[in-house]
Design a protein around this nucleic acid. Structure first.
Length: 269
DNA sequence: AGCTCATGGCGAG
DNA sequence: TCGCCCTGAGCTG
């Protein structure tokens, strides 16, 4: 259940295990059997994350394209690969390492054109070096859609999920309901810079921490967290609990079918 | 054992 | 806006 930071972290891990090696590929579950046969036994040239999309590039111009969706999960190990347990969509292995993929929304083989087409459908990714936020913010500034919805739209910005959406808007005191066209350019610049910083830190740690040092004492004093997303956050999944900055009850609402969290006092604008 | 919910995204109305 | 796809964990009984 990853946002872009976890996908980039997984790309690094896959790179360490498989880059520039000949990799065996199969599909114990069978649903990816045809795709696996197209790349089995080829040299892995490149492994890249773009937003929440992962691409494993093979010699011969073919790519495995994976999107984990809500439920997808990778497992890794060293040495001989274990017998598959349950539904394993994709398995990769070489002499030293193995990896298993379960439950992805997307697992397919693309050629170079297909890979470029997939990339053309997503907006700039704050984790990637040299990503340019300009096209994203141009769309935001022309849109009446709430900024909270725009940040989750992967064609605007890629890699931001429900946690980063909630947290970055909190950190900039912006109401998730403010129309994109009412965002000031300096606010958008600051939000981009913050996403770059937060998501790159989240890539290294494979978790999402957004609470500033000066508010960490509040974190220490509060009740143990009851969810398992695994980081220290201001508002995500904290509905009904006091805001770590002002004490107001954190609110929750449905926005386009996803749970939205915010502090109505800190984010009134 | 069965329900609900989850860091996501797509397509049909 | 809704329903659907994918899987697993954490409840409730």
């Amino acid at each position: 259940m990853p946002e872009g930071n976890v996908v980039h972290h997984l790309a690094r891990r896959l790179r360490r295990a498989f880059a520039r090696t000949v990799v065996r590929v199969d599909s114990p579950q069978g649903r990816f059997a045809d795709g696996a046969a197209l790349v089995d036994g080829r040299l892995v040239r490149k492994i890249e994350a773009h937003g929440k999309h992962l691409f494993v590039g093979f010699e011969g111009g073919r790519w495995i394209h994976v999107h984990l969706g809500l439920f997808g999960k990778w497992a890794f190990g060293e040495g001989p690969r274990p017998e598959p347990v349950g539904l394993v969509r994709l398995r990769l292995w070489n002499d030293d390492s193995w990896a298993e993929l379960r439950g992805p929304t997307v697992c397919e083989v693309l050629d170079d054109a297909g890979m470029r087409a997939a990339l053309s459908r997503i907006g700039p990714d704050p984790i990637r070096p040299r990503a340019d936020p300009a096209p994203a913010w141009e769309r935001v500034r022309r849109s009446a859609t709430p900024i909270g919805a725009l940040l989750l739209d992967q064609t605007v910005v890629s890699g931001v999920g429900n946690i980063y959406r909630a947290e970055v808007l909190f950190r900039h005191n912006v109401s998730p309901y403010r129309p994109g066209r009412d965002m000031r350019p300096d606010e958008l610049d600051a939000i981009w810079a913050d996403l770059v910083m937060l998501m790159r830190a989240g890539t290294r740690r494979a978790r999402i921490d957004t609470v500033r040092d000066e508010h960490l004492p509040h974190v220490m004093g509060r009740a143990p967290r009851e969810d398992r997303h695994g980081g220290e956050v201001y508002v995500y999944r904290r509905a009904g609990q006091p805001c770590l900055v002002c004490g107001t009850q954190v609110q929750m609402a449905d926005l386009n079918g996803r749970n939205l969290y915010w502090c109505p006092a800190c984010q009134s604008a």
